[in-house]
Protein backbone atom coordinates (compact mmCIF):
# COMPACT_ATOMS: atom_id res chain seq x y z
CA UNK A 1 0.00 0.00 0.00
CA UNK A 2 1.27 3.46 -0.81
CA UNK A 3 2.43 5.66 2.02
CA UNK A 4 -0.16 8.40 1.49
CA UNK A 5 -2.91 5.79 1.71
CA UNK A 6 -1.42 4.55 4.95
CA UNK A 7 -1.35 8.09 6.29
CA UNK A 8 -4.97 8.58 5.27
CA UNK A 9 -5.93 5.39 7.02
CA UNK A 10 -4.15 6.47 10.18
CA UNK A 11 -5.78 9.89 10.01
CA UNK A 12 -9.22 8.33 9.60
CA UNK A 13 -8.64 5.90 12.47
CA UNK A 14 -7.78 8.84 14.74
CA UNK A 15 -11.23 10.22 13.95
CA UNK A 16 -12.92 6.96 14.74
CA UNK A 17 -13.33 5.70 11.20
CA UNK A 18 -12.09 2.22 10.51
CA UNK A 19 -10.99 1.46 6.99
CA UNK A 20 -9.51 -1.68 5.54
CA UNK A 21 -8.59 -3.25 2.27
CA UNK A 22 -9.66 -6.59 0.84
CA UNK A 23 -6.06 -7.74 1.11
CA UNK A 24 -5.91 -6.94 4.82
CA UNK A 25 -9.27 -8.59 5.42
CA UNK A 26 -8.19 -11.70 3.52
CA UNK A 27 -4.91 -11.97 5.38
CA UNK A 28 -6.65 -11.32 8.70
CA UNK A 29 -8.87 -14.30 8.02
CA UNK A 30 -5.97 -16.45 6.91
CA UNK A 31 -3.71 -15.74 9.83
CA UNK A 32 -6.39 -16.34 12.44
CA UNK A 33 -7.49 -19.73 11.17
CA UNK A 34 -4.27 -21.69 10.76
CA UNK A 35 -5.04 -25.29 11.62
CA UNK A 36 -2.01 -27.39 12.52
CA UNK A 37 -1.59 -31.04 11.69
CA UNK A 38 -1.66 -33.51 14.59
CA UNK A 39 1.89 -34.58 14.06
CA UNK A 40 4.43 -35.14 16.81
CA UNK A 41 7.82 -36.72 16.34
CA UNK A 42 9.66 -36.61 19.67
CA UNK A 43 9.94 -34.73 22.96
CA UNK A 44 9.09 -31.40 21.29
CA UNK A 45 5.64 -32.83 20.62
CA UNK A 46 5.02 -32.89 24.37
CA UNK A 47 5.70 -29.16 24.49
CA UNK A 48 3.45 -28.72 21.46
CA UNK A 49 0.67 -30.56 23.30
CA UNK A 50 1.26 -28.37 26.36
CA UNK A 51 0.93 -25.31 24.12
CA UNK A 52 -2.56 -26.33 23.11
CA UNK A 53 -3.70 -26.98 26.67
CA UNK A 54 -5.37 -24.55 29.05
CA UNK A 55 -2.22 -23.00 30.53
CA UNK A 56 -0.79 -21.73 27.23
CA UNK A 57 -3.95 -21.99 25.12
CA UNK A 58 -3.02 -21.85 21.45
CA UNK A 59 -6.74 -21.38 20.80
CA UNK A 60 -6.23 -17.67 21.40
CA UNK A 61 -4.56 -17.59 17.99
CA UNK A 62 -7.25 -19.54 16.19
CA UNK A 63 -5.11 -22.66 16.00
CA UNK A 64 -6.68 -24.97 18.55
CA UNK A 65 -8.07 -27.32 15.93
CA UNK A 66 -5.34 -29.88 15.37
CA UNK A 67 -6.45 -31.87 12.34
CA UNK A 68 -5.65 -35.57 12.20
CA UNK A 69 -5.67 -35.50 8.40
CA UNK A 70 -3.28 -33.54 6.20
CA UNK A 71 -6.22 -32.81 3.89
CA UNK A 72 -7.62 -30.38 6.45
CA UNK A 73 -4.42 -28.90 7.87
CA UNK A 74 -2.63 -25.66 6.99
CA UNK A 75 0.43 -25.96 9.17
CA UNK A 76 2.81 -28.81 9.90
CA UNK A 77 4.80 -28.35 13.09
CA UNK A 78 7.84 -30.59 12.69
CA UNK A 79 8.23 -31.20 16.42
CA UNK A 80 11.19 -33.41 17.03
CA UNK A 81 13.97 -35.47 15.55
CA UNK A 82 13.40 -36.40 11.93
CA UNK A 83 15.10 -39.69 11.25
CA UNK A 84 16.06 -40.55 7.72
CA UNK A 85 13.45 -43.29 7.84
CA UNK A 86 10.77 -40.75 8.75
CA UNK A 87 11.80 -37.96 6.37
CA UNK A 88 9.97 -39.32 3.27
CA UNK A 89 6.78 -39.58 5.32
CA UNK A 90 7.13 -35.98 6.53
CA UNK A 91 7.59 -34.73 2.97
CA UNK A 92 4.67 -36.82 1.75
CA UNK A 93 2.43 -35.48 4.52
CA UNK A 94 3.45 -31.96 3.57
CA UNK A 95 2.66 -32.75 -0.06
CA UNK A 96 -0.79 -33.94 0.91
CA UNK A 97 -1.71 -30.71 2.66
CA UNK A 98 -3.78 -28.24 0.64
CA UNK A 99 -2.47 -24.79 -0.20
CA UNK A 100 -1.79 -22.44 1.48
CA UNK A 101 0.45 -24.46 3.79
CA UNK A 102 3.14 -23.54 6.27
CA UNK A 103 5.92 -25.27 8.15
CA UNK A 104 7.29 -24.57 11.62
CA UNK A 105 10.51 -26.46 12.38
CA UNK A 106 10.35 -26.81 16.15
CA UNK A 107 13.44 -27.50 18.19
CA UNK A 108 17.11 -28.15 17.61
CA UNK A 109 16.47 -31.53 15.97
CA UNK A 110 14.01 -30.33 13.37
CA UNK A 111 16.21 -27.40 12.37
CA UNK A 112 19.61 -29.08 12.44
CA UNK A 113 19.58 -32.60 13.85
CA UNK A 114 20.21 -31.27 17.35
CA UNK A 115 22.05 -33.47 19.84
CA UNK A 116 21.60 -36.43 17.49
CA UNK A 117 23.26 -34.62 14.61
CA UNK A 118 26.14 -37.08 14.46
CA UNK A 119 23.81 -40.05 14.23
CA UNK A 120 24.00 -41.86 10.91
CA UNK A 121 20.21 -42.11 10.83
CA UNK A 122 19.28 -38.51 11.67
CA UNK A 123 18.25 -35.93 9.12
CA UNK A 124 20.15 -32.72 9.80
CA UNK A 125 17.22 -30.37 9.40
CA UNK A 126 13.88 -30.76 7.66
CA UNK A 127 14.57 -27.59 5.62
CA UNK A 128 16.58 -29.81 3.29
CA UNK A 129 13.34 -31.05 1.76
CA UNK A 130 10.47 -28.68 2.51
CA UNK A 131 10.32 -24.88 2.73
CA UNK A 132 10.31 -23.97 6.43
CA UNK A 133 8.60 -20.71 7.36
CA UNK A 134 9.71 -20.38 10.99
CA UNK A 135 12.60 -22.07 12.80
CA UNK A 136 12.53 -22.35 16.61
CA UNK A 137 15.73 -23.19 18.47
CA UNK A 138 15.62 -24.94 21.84
CA UNK A 139 15.81 -28.45 23.20
CA UNK A 140 12.90 -28.58 23.57
CA UNK A 141 11.53 -25.05 23.06
CA UNK A 142 9.11 -23.99 25.74
CA UNK A 143 5.46 -23.42 24.81
CA UNK A 144 6.13 -19.68 24.86
CA UNK A 145 8.68 -20.21 22.10
CA UNK A 146 6.17 -22.12 20.00
CA UNK A 147 3.62 -19.38 20.55
CA UNK A 148 6.24 -16.84 19.51
CA UNK A 149 6.92 -18.86 16.37
CA UNK A 150 3.21 -18.98 15.71
CA UNK A 151 2.91 -15.22 16.08
CA UNK A 152 5.89 -14.82 13.75
CA UNK A 153 4.10 -16.97 11.20
CA UNK A 154 0.95 -14.90 11.64
CA UNK A 155 2.94 -11.73 11.03
CA UNK A 156 4.44 -13.30 7.95
CA UNK A 157 0.99 -14.16 6.61
CA UNK A 158 -0.31 -10.72 7.45
CA UNK A 159 2.43 -8.97 5.50
CA UNK A 160 2.06 -11.02 2.34
CA UNK A 161 0.87 -8.99 -0.62
CA UNK A 162 -1.69 -10.87 -2.65
CA UNK A 163 -0.23 -9.67 -5.94
CA UNK A 164 3.25 -9.27 -7.26
CA UNK A 165 6.34 -11.40 -7.09
CA UNK A 166 6.15 -12.14 -3.37
CA UNK A 167 2.52 -13.27 -3.40
CA UNK A 168 1.67 -16.35 -1.33
CA UNK A 169 2.40 -19.76 -2.79
CA UNK A 170 -1.22 -20.72 -3.26
CA UNK A 171 -1.86 -17.72 -5.50
CA UNK A 172 1.18 -18.42 -7.64
CA UNK A 173 0.33 -21.18 -10.10
CA UNK A 174 4.00 -21.51 -11.13
CA UNK A 175 5.17 -22.67 -7.73
CA UNK A 176 4.91 -26.41 -7.14
CA UNK A 177 2.43 -27.82 -4.64
CA UNK A 178 4.43 -30.99 -4.15
CA UNK A 179 8.07 -31.51 -3.38
CA UNK A 180 10.14 -34.55 -4.36
CA UNK A 181 9.96 -37.28 -1.74
CA UNK A 182 13.47 -38.57 -0.93
CA UNK A 183 14.14 -42.25 -1.28
CA UNK A 184 16.26 -44.66 0.70
CA UNK A 185 19.64 -45.02 -0.98
CA UNK A 186 22.72 -47.02 -0.17
CA UNK A 187 24.16 -44.20 1.97
CA UNK A 188 21.21 -42.33 3.39
CA UNK A 189 18.51 -40.45 1.57
CA UNK A 190 18.66 -39.70 -2.13
CA UNK A 191 18.79 -36.90 -2.98
CA UNK A 192 20.48 -35.61 0.18
CA UNK A 193 18.70 -32.29 -0.21
CA UNK A 194 16.27 -30.49 -2.47
CA UNK A 195 18.22 -27.74 -4.22
CA UNK A 196 15.00 -25.82 -4.93
CA UNK A 197 14.31 -25.49 -1.21
CA UNK A 198 17.60 -25.69 0.69
CA UNK A 199 19.01 -22.25 -0.10
CA UNK A 200 21.52 -19.90 1.48
CA UNK A 201 20.99 -16.16 1.98
CA UNK A 202 21.77 -15.35 -1.64
CA UNK A 203 19.20 -17.82 -2.95
CA UNK A 204 21.71 -20.40 -4.13
CA UNK A 205 21.64 -24.07 -3.11
CA UNK A 206 23.38 -24.69 0.20
CA UNK A 207 26.18 -27.20 0.17
CA UNK A 208 26.98 -28.79 3.49
CA UNK A 209 29.25 -31.77 3.71
CA UNK A 210 27.31 -34.40 5.65
Amino acid sequence: MADDLKDLKLELSKNGIFTTTLEELYNWGRRNSVWPLTFGLACCAIEMIATTMARYDLARFGAEVFRPSPRQADLIIVSGTVTKKMAPQVVRLYNQMPEPKYVIAMGACAISGGPFRDGYNVLKGIDRYIPVDVHIPGCPPRPEALIHAFMTLQKKIEEQALRGESRPRHLNADLPSEFPVPEFGAHGLEPAQNDEVFLNETGNPLRIIQ
Binding site: S69, P70, R71, P88, Q89, V90, R92, L93, N95, Q96, P98, E99, P100, H170, L171, A173, P176, S177, E178, V181
Partner: peptide, 17 residues
Protein backbone atom coordinates in the same frame (compact mmCIF):
# COMPACT_ATOMS: atom_id res chain seq x y z
CA UNK B 1 -6.41 -22.44 -5.60
CA UNK B 2 -6.33 -25.86 -7.18
CA UNK B 3 -2.94 -27.53 -7.05
CA UNK B 4 -3.43 -31.23 -7.50
CA UNK B 5 -0.60 -33.74 -7.52
CA UNK B 6 0.11 -37.44 -7.28
CA UNK B 7 0.74 -37.41 -3.52
CA UNK B 8 -2.13 -35.07 -2.78
CA UNK B 9 -4.63 -37.19 -4.68
CA UNK B 10 -3.44 -40.41 -3.09
CA UNK B 11 -6.12 -42.33 -1.19
CA UNK B 12 -4.09 -43.14 1.89
CA UNK B 13 -3.21 -40.04 3.88
CA UNK B 14 -0.87 -41.03 6.69
CA UNK B 15 2.41 -40.32 4.96
CA UNK B 16 2.98 -43.87 3.86
CA UNK B 17 2.41 -45.16 0.37
Amino acid sequence: PQKPGADKNATYECGLE
